[in-house]
Write a protein that binds this DNA or RNA. Structure first.
Lengths: 161, 161
DNA sequence: TTGGAAAGTCAACAATACTGACATAAAATG
DNA sequence: CATTTTATGTCAGTATTGTTGACTTTCCAA
């Protein structure tokens, strides 16, 4: 446990007890629950779930993305993603076009009604984030971003801007 | 970043573009994915999943907690939690005792082997958190905590220490 | 004492993850 | 150029974990 010896250097100002770390872990759990609750609430009126929301979000952020690239971002199996995409394409929220260079690929983008649903979900989530950012202040936001970037797997950082 | 317009008030230093908020949203997604990956990896060797981990975590943190109280924390239905608890009790990782005052209640706590599994899961997760905290620094950690507390639903704060 | 509320359990179903098998297209190899 | 290998995406079946509904036991209050 929190091994800081009495010879701690100045560069090691953090006194990390197990209890402090467990608090951070619980904070992640509760915050993520709140973070997903607003879109989940909206999606109850549809036949869609959180998986559809994630697909809509990242297709919106990366127009003409391929299934493979989306797979890398989401970190699920292609079979799992495929079920979700099939529904969204059938319902005309997502447009899937055969790739020009490589005809094995599919290029995905949102249709106007896809954009509409994505925006209503995004709006609810952004509202919560904006309120949290404002309440915590600019320095806190910087810290929030820094810690989260260090929690995530490094190779996933390429998917941030 | 966060450049404020020249008409910004002192109380409103944050200039939050949709893009900045969307970046924060994606950061939450990627960080949570990393956050859960280490325990998930370990649990692949068992017949348990993330739901079991959550139960073990909060029973460990709140010895003799009732099923109802655990339900409030986890935010799932009691039927869903019950399946998980039944397995953990059958496998003797959790001890369920009829309440003394109120015999409708069950008081839950970890057995020694339950503590052992919980600790191995916790250890992996704490290791990642500790590394992230150290890399980001003390001020960042404070900001991380502040933003996360503002993201979560206010009534859930009673479950933090 | 009786009727309702609370705590927990059992059963069936839904969403979303998974593995395996497969079709098609591109790339690599002879 | 023909054949094999690799990559992309789809279809089918299974596992985990969420849901609602029906039920028992226990407590409490009228």
């Amino acid at each position: 446990m929190a091994d800081h010896s009495n010879t701690a250097k100045a560069e090691n100002l953090l006194f990390l007890t197990d209890d402090q770390l467990l608090q951070g872990i619980e904070l992640m759990f509760f915050a993520y629950k709140g973070f997903t609750s607003d879109p989940d609430q909206i999606l109850q009126n549809y036949t869609y779930g959180r998986a559809h929301h994630r697909a809509l979000h990242f297709i919106n952020r990366n127009p003409n993305i391929t299934v493979s690239a989306l797979l890398d971002i989401l970190g699920v199996t292609k079979q799992s993603l495929n079920r979700v995409l099939r529904q969204l394409v059938e319902d005309k929220l997502v447009d899937s076009k055969v790739g020009k260079r490589d005809r094995r690929e599919r290029n995905l983008k949102l249709t106007p009604s896809g954009q509409e649903l994505e925006h209503s979900l995004s709006d609810a989530q952004r509202k919560r984030m904006r309120a949290a950012y404002k309440a915590a202040g600019p320095d806190a936001v910087q810290g929030f971003r820094s810690v989260l970037q260090n929690i995530m797997d490094p190779q996933m950082k390429i998917h941030l801007d």
